[in-house]
Design a protein around this nucleic acid. Sequence first.
RNA 1: GCCCCCAUCGUCUAGUGGCCUAGGACGCCGCCCUCUCACGGCGGUGGCAGGGGUUCAAAUCCCCUUGGGGGUACCA
Length: 497
Amino acid sequence: MTTTKIRTRFAPSPTGFLHVGGARTALFNWLYARHYGGTFVLRIEDTDLERSTEESVDVILEGMRWLGFDWDEGPGPDGDIGEFAPYFQSARLDIYKSYIKKLLDEDKAYPCYCTPEELRQRREASLARGEDPKYDRRCADLIQSEREALALEGRESVIRFRSSDEGSTVVNDLIHGEIIFDNAMLDDFVVLKSDGTPTYNFAVVIDDHLMEITHVIRGDDHISNTPRQIQVYEALSFPLPEFAHLPMILGSDKTRLSKRHGATSVTEYRDAGFVPEALDNYLALLGWSFSASDTLFTTQELIEKFTLERVSKNPAVFDMKKLEWMNGVYIREMPIERLTELVLPRLQEAELLPHEIDAETRQRVKQIASSLQSRLRTLADFVPSSRYFFTDEIHYDEAAVDEFLYQDHIPEMFEMLHAGLKNLQAFGESDIEQVFRGVQKHLGMKLGEVIQPVRVAITGTRISPGMYEVLAILGQERTCRLLENVITKVKTELSKA
RNA sequence: GCCCCCAUCGUCUAGUGGCCUAGGACGCCGCCCUCUCACGGCGGUGGCAGGGGUUCAAAUCCCCUUGGGGGUACCA
């Protein structure tokens, strides 16, 4: 057992939405902390002043809450919470500067006056010569007077880290094992930009150290950055945390998951009718597995079973079909009351229900939800599938109407059904079934030959829950009225032909 | 270009040298249930990238090739 308390963090940069890849990283950090009774920190890496926005921070926090990833330290409703505040990098600039000063004082870093344009040209030139496009260190050994002269030219400076060309740097990764980098491959990278903000590779080290992060769990696109960071740790005599690099999430064409592949933001999945537990469960399986046979895990089980040892090394392709299946499982297994509550706002949104919902309506929606529960893959499916329960304006599937309704025997058959249904004292499923059976027997038809036309008449389509159930929910009055409407419609059409 | 990571069914994966004639899940196909569609049940299709080694024995270890991904920014 470890004696030090585990501390993990998720450190998104607020330049857009909470990406599913980011959500997966957050999930693993969160699960790891919860599994070991550690602390989960949320830190906002907003040092890119150009691209970071406040709205993006809100969207990310909202996504985190929706997914259920509660953080112990980080942004709170009234400012940052936690002993290592602030948790926004933009509010920690003085801290970074003090460490920059330390590096400068010890000659482990130096100011560089090359402009981005000059750097770009030299990089391209060396690439064209077939050389490594490394920074050429022309500012590495400037003397004070030279620096002043460059500054006098109006040049802005950045601070570069003086990296060693000797030896190698070893990344000891919990998932990948030892990864060795030749130090000669690393150049003197920028640690402080000319606008006074630190670069990622520097700030991440300072913060992870100061916030006492014990396990740095992140996407494996950061592997190549890790040796740079390790050199910073060493230059500042900080102890190294453990590193664990997660496999990336890819799109169906095996390239990095992006907009081209469909929805990538957590918000989109929420809006599309996915439930958070399903997304958590699915995301957990992207890079982690528990056994040869288990795939369904409640969030609590995920916490209990999650370990880094069972994280795989290979990249995972995001499979929407499997997510949909899993979401369907969660919808099927949730209490009907919850499904009802989740679906009400969507029905209001579609203007199928008023803003005020009374107990009777809620009860009715509950019945409908119950009839549709096994047929949903997303909550969004509910609206089109239940439309006819709420409005007489039926959208007819023309082909189905031609096939089932515009037949000579339909008016007579429907009139028999109408008469039978109208006379019922009670309008339960079994009562309705009696009427259908009677008509079917009388006409010498198969049950389906009676029911399917009714289905098309009532729902407009050939697909719905059991017919007796649908009619019972609709109620005697509406059922009879809808039948009457259809009988007229069919007669009119037949007389035309 | 250079550096790094990765490589089992279409997809997610189990597999840590003999238990593998390679297991599960999604998808797909078929059958059953059945008033349609779902659900559910049953069955099927389908894979160790290629080549060399090591070993009595390799999906499992090593090397090479190939393929994919990432990095090489005053983005994170």
